[in-house]
Nucleic acid binder design. Structure first.
Lengths: 203, 203
DNA sequence: TACCCTACCAAGCACTTGCTTGGGTCGCGA
DNA sequence: TCGCGACCCAAGCAAGTGCTTGGTAGGGTA
């Protein structure tokens, strides 16, 4: 109910082009710091012409973030609904997140950098809601992992959750799609560090 | 050479007050997103009056970030110059960083959120320079740790560095000075996760 | 031929931004 | 008592902001 508040969707070609351009700029410079003239310039049109396709700058980010989050949660739900062990689910969720950084780099960057600003507008209230769901997902998996004897019980779940959440998503700052490292390679290393640590175990 | 470009420092009282107010607002809303009128309002004066104390909005962040980084590096240099083992140095640097998040919360937040924007101005070139030094410090310690047999050798040092750097500094997003957790408690847990992992080791 | 649709331009409006200018007040040392 | 510096106000400027308005070119459709 948040993203579809734009004029009856035209064929879809030009509109998606413009959205992709906006996404790139928002990700690079931040939402507030990107002007509608910037977007129009990059698209080779005048700023006023953008308003033929979208009814506001806000509705552009809205559409970007909303559709992205919808797709991401489809994957998360599939994982949590599976019959994997808690630890395997945890690994799968981490891998799905790194895939998202790879495939939806701009959207993740926008979410990381501008969510705290956007959440101030009631239009973006759904972001807060998703944060809550997200927190439940992670802490639930961590607790189940401890319960199942797969994860150590002497750590503060809340702290581990924040650690996990931040380390995964903040990677968007340096990860570049199409670079040397695949998302699965990064996930491998991250999961190794997270689960086993970087200290040398004797033997 | 970057922060001291303001009228001959007066006694220091009012100026420091205003800087503290600006720091808080910059940290909360971001540099670009904080107006000089916001700062003036919070201080109970008019925006023009700010220019009696500072010659630009930029010089305010400049002074904040520069003095903060100077202090931080004094500690880092003391640690690296000590005769601790690589692993112990690593732990000490992590602890010093969490202390910085506690004592200079606003400055760390500003650096985390706005450095990528500020680095675009040549005035803030020293930020890039510090980043390079920072990277050398961490990777140097990691390599020395592997060399000394204290850290495992099968991980990509570059990736571990990014992981470490991000996990430490991104904590500024949720950590609140004066809250339930002391910086040393957070550091304890983070170092445990980092060094030993969260998986249950058999036995 | 008459009509509508998509996609854009040209111009500008109302507002916000960082910063400037020209003053004023008050306390303190000489 | 006088001057001076610290501190602040009132008013406003130039540039930039998101968005609106009225219009046009070109293509499809009846």
């Amino acid at each position: 109910m948040s993203a579809a508040s734009t004029p009856e969707r035209p064929a879809g070609g030009r509109r998606e082009e413009l959205l992709a351009i906006a996404a790139r700029l928002f990700a690079e410079r931040g939402f507030k710091n990107t002007t509608v003239r910037d977007i129009a310039d990059a698209a080779g049109i005048l700023s006023g012409s953008l308003y033929h396709h979208f009814d506001s700058k806000e509705s552009m980010v809205d559409e970007l973030l909303d559709t992205f989050q919808r797709e991401l949660w489809k994957e998360y739900d599939a994982i949590t609904g599976s019959d994997l062990s808690p630890r395997a689910k945890l690994e799968a969720v981490v891998r799905a997140s790194f895939d998202a950084i790879d495939h939806h780099h701009s959207e993740v960057a926008i979410f990381q950098n501008d969510a705290s600003y956007l959440i101030g507008f009631e239009r973006f209230g759904y972001l807060e809601e998703r944060n809550v769901r997200f927190r439940r997902l992670w802490t639930g998996l961590l607790e189940a992992g401890v319960e199942a004897g797969e994860l150590r019980a002497d750590l503060d779940v809340e702290l581990v959750y924040r650690f996990l959440r931040d380390t995964v998503w903040v990677a968007v700052r340096w990860y570049r799609p199409g670079g040397e490292l695949s998302p699965s390679q990064v996930a491998d290393q991250y999961l190794t560090i997270l689960l086993e640590g970087i200290a040398k175990t004797d033997g």
